[in-house]
Design a protein around this nucleic acid. Sequence first.
DNA 1: CATTCGTGGTT
DNA 2: TAACCAAGAAT
Length: 366
Amino acid sequence: MPADFHSFATELLGWYRRHARSLPWRLPPGSAAPPDPYAVWLSEIMLQQTTVAAAGPYFSRFLARWPSVRDLAAAPREDVLAAWAGLGYYSRARNLHAAARHVAEAFGGVFPSTEEGLRALPGVGPYTAAAIAAIAFGERAAVVDANVERVAARLFAVETPLPAAKPEIREKVGLLTPAAAPGDFAQAMMDLGALVCSPKRPQCAACPVAAYCEGRARGIAESLPRFAPKKARATRRAVAFLCLRSDGAVLLRRRPDKGLLGGMLEVPSSPWAEGALDLEAALAHAPLRARWRARAGLVTHTFTHFRLELAVYEGRPGASAIGEADGLWVAPSDLATVGLPTVMRKVTALVEPAPGPLFAAGSAGR
DNA sequence: CATTCGTGGTT
DNA sequence: TAACCAAGAAT
């Protein structure tokens, strides 16, 4: 463990202020102007379990379309969900909108400035509350994400597996965090984890704080942090129903508010079940009467805890059957803009006018 | 404490 | 290519 917390922070902050920042939308380190809490909140929500490269374009679009928390609060929920489509973890979008409305209506558009106050907002957990408090408000908060966990586990040679080691790591990071520039310190720790203290093959030779690292001293840095064993991923199967109206429009449906892809649009399908696909039972879940014909190949998609295989069946209902289904009919040219989750875009790619390069290979093949 | 929740980049 | 991994939160 570092002999001197103060000099550790000094070394790390010196490195951070010298090296290229990984988040271009953030203010320069040590900047006098305080960052906009709304922008910090928005970026931190988007960055939960999401890479900077993936979140960046979404962040720019959201900020341009809804420049303040009041603007976001005033937006229809479907617009926010549609704008989030493709980014994943859709509860973040639902919570984002709910939190915006709460801040706008209960707090007059002003964000809470303390960790505790922020923590009460939907979608804001321990990490995000600490990050906003430190970065936007200069509060001395212990910011612990997966990067910081890895850095701390190596720095202090924590051999207890995660997640059991979380309290211990959090306590040590709290001791390490300086009162001056806690936001820069937090971002420095995260950047160090992302750029130098990487999961595999950490670049210890380039590390500004290698001299303080107990894990390196013991020669076990790369093997840390340790993790509890992971569970295997099952496969679920279903039939997806591609209903095509005579004018080419496709039938979509909105999913229930809770659970997987909650509140998002989908291509109607039979229930997603583990084990072999019972074709007859699956076809009984068709949203309307039609002559269903199998499309070639399978659409496959891997979620966090299971794999999905969709057999796509196409049907062209007659005029009398059109009204049987509840949902909305979307023209092929609008499919790209209505806001479909990625898994559903893989299905609709089968009928979109000009399939983009995104899913051209691999998605519908076998 | 374990599970549920997406997606895309890296190795 | 399959496995790994991510600026986590809610339940």
